[in-house]
Nucleic acid binder design. Structure first.
Length: 534
DNA sequence: AGAAAATGATCCC
DNA sequence: TGGGATCCCTTTTC
């Protein structure tokens, strides 16, 4: 009562049931000023009516958003995971099914022109058993943060096992010796905007090619940082967005000694490695005016090229007869194709990641390519602000069935909303393992598996992570249950608590400011794995 | 602490 | 066909 004379009366009235009224008013709190109170006290009693208004669809009667560490979908929208109407992510069959997310694709038996392109030598060998050490049961995690913008690509050194290269949105190239955790080099003057893709020079471990949204290809000496430009598609500088060319999807055809890149208008370019010169004229390989984001040369037959992009297609080309419209096959997707790779050993499988939340697998390029062999529902559709997710092969897996990809939607792990990095068996669609760390609350959209060692590298926002197993020899019941792998961030050089936020070049663990309680809760469990969802 | 900004595909007219 | 609104489980900075 006393308070009422000091402060306006605030009555919060929660509406639990739906009401049919226009959405405009309901978004704002209704403020009611009763006449008599206003007159009597000279103060302003306020009645605030808070209705449950969904911030996604703006309708009342339900709410979308985080409840604790669990996100509640708007029921008026299609499932956020599988994109089908009628249910939400929580009840999505692709989330709760044992065979996580797999959708069998229809098969037809038609002859395939690729059979005539390829030699029989390329037939796949498919050992059914994966090496036992592929997936760690527990992981250590080392962290470094020296990029000033988000990480866009990662590449392991082809011969030195402890070197990880990273590119970022600003165009910087990072070289991290994660064996000696604190040793790193950053070259900031190679490109002046997004470093989209890079690839080591196949004839010289000491240099790397990179394609950038600044429209140039660089070849950088890793020791000196001296870089030369193989191509510049914007020689006249900025003349507006309709003419500015950006380069993506770099790969090297070593047979031809050619660097391949593609641009944001649908064109493929080549540069000769030996002369470091742009070759011939560009070829339109995707719908004119659309971005080509990925290029991949077949590991056994480099003249076979796989491209993908924003025209919703992945396309297969024969470099020997390359011209606009000459693709051997066009692999249709429902939305943008973020990545498309041949399998790393046999080159006979194809793996794509599309923004329709599906990983697609074609089991053999000798078979029918009209439809994928499998579609695996997986959350990697993102809104903005992230580097596109790409499902990446494990080159150590001789059966060519293990793939790693970051997950967009979070899961509630003992009260913390975390975004795991998923290991998926693309032969079965099964989620084999999920790696996360309670200290890492950001989304790890860039991931790469070490070509020779049991190491996973991740790029998440501006940070880089190296995950390695604590034990190598454990027998894993991989096919029976999924594994939750909790990392344990290395605490080395983490003694200073004061100046943690401003030094870009420090080595440190990642801390989340609002997550301290959750970390404590998780700490007791972070050193062991557990299965979940039975 | 809370707001703004950065910024990309897609859809609609 | 193109520009602007919209999408709406981000991350960082001020």
């Amino acid at each position: 009562m006393r308070r009422k004379s000091l402060f306006p009366q605030v009555v919060i009235d929660r509406d639990t049931e739906s009401e049919e009224s226009s959405s405009e008013e309901e978004e704002e709190a209704n403020v009611v000023l009763p006449e008599e109170e206003r007159v009597q006290k000279g103060k302003t009693p306020i009645t605030i009516t808070l209705k449950k208004v969904c911030k996604v669809c703006k309708k009342s009667g339900h709410e979308a958003g985080f409840r604790g560490a669990t996100y509640i979908d708007c029921p008026m929208k299609p499932c956020f995971l599988c994109k089908m109407p009628g249910h939400t992510t929580v009840t999505c069959p692709h989330r709760v099914a044992t065979e996580y997310g797999m959708v069998p694709a229809p098969h037809k038996n038609t002859t395939n022109p690729l059979e005539f392109v390829f030699q029989r030598q390329l037939h796949p060998r498919l050992p059914p058993i994966k090496p036992a050490h592929v997936i760690p049961d527990q992981v250590h995690c080392a962290v470094i943060r020296y990029h000033s913008r988000r990480v866009t690509c990662l590449e392991f050194h082809p011969t030195n096992n402890n070197i990880l290269l990273s590119g970022d949105k600003k165009g910087q190239l990072g070289i991290w010796d994660f064996g000696k955790v604190h040793e790193k080099t950053v070259y900031g003057n190679i490109h002046n905007c997004i470093l989209n893709n890079m690839k080591f020079n196949p004839t010289n471990d000491g240099s790397i090619y990179a394609a950038s949204s600044d429209g140039t290809i660089s070849c950088t000496d890793l020791e000196t940082g001296i870089s030369l430009s193989l191509m510049n598609l914007n020689p006249n500088g900025w003349e507006g967005p309709s003419s500015w060319r950006m380069l993506y999807g770099l790969d090297v055809n070593s047979d031809r000694s050619v660097v391949l890149v593609a641009d944001n208008f649908g064109y493929l370019y080549m540069a000769d490695i030996r002369s470091n010169n742009k070759m011939s004229k560009p070829t339109l390989i995707h719908k004119k005016g659309t971005k080509v984001v990925g290029l991949n040369c077949n590991p056994l037959q480099p003249d076979l090229l796989l491209s993908c992009g924003n025209d919703h297609f992945a396309r297969i080309w024969d470099m020997r007869c390359l011209e606009a419209g000459s693709s051997l096959y066009n692999l249709e997707h429902k939305r943008v194709v973020s990545s498309a790779y041949f399998s790393p050993l046999s080159g006979s499988k194809i793996l794509t990641t599309s923004l329709d939340n599906r990983i697609r697998v074609w089991d053999s390029i000798f078979g029918n390519l009209d439809y994928p062999s499998r579609e695996i529902v997986h959350s990697h559709d993102f809104n903005r602000y992230l580097t596109a997710f790409r499902a990446e092969w494990d080159a150590k897996d001789s059966s060519e069935s293990l793939v790693v990809i970051g997950r967009y939607i979070s899961e509630n792990y003992d009260g913390a909303a975390l975004h795991p990095i998923d290991f998926i068996n693309i032969s079965t669609g099964q989620l084999v393992a999920e790696v996360m760390d309670p200290n890492i609350t950001t989304i790890s959209s860039v991931n790469k598996l070490h070509p020779r060692e049991d190491i996973l590298a991740s790029g998440s926002s501006r940070s880089l992570f190296i995950w390695r197993p604590k034990k190598l020899d454990i027998a894993l019941p991989r096919e029976e249950k999924r594994m939750v792998l909790c990392g344990e961030v290395s605490k080395k050089r983490n003694k200073k608590h004061g100046d943690e936020s401003d030094d870009d070049s420090k080595y440190d663990i990642v801390r989340s400011k609002d997550n301290s309680l959750k970390q404590k809760k998780l700490a007791s469990k972070s050193s062991s794995y557990k299965s979940r969802r039975s």
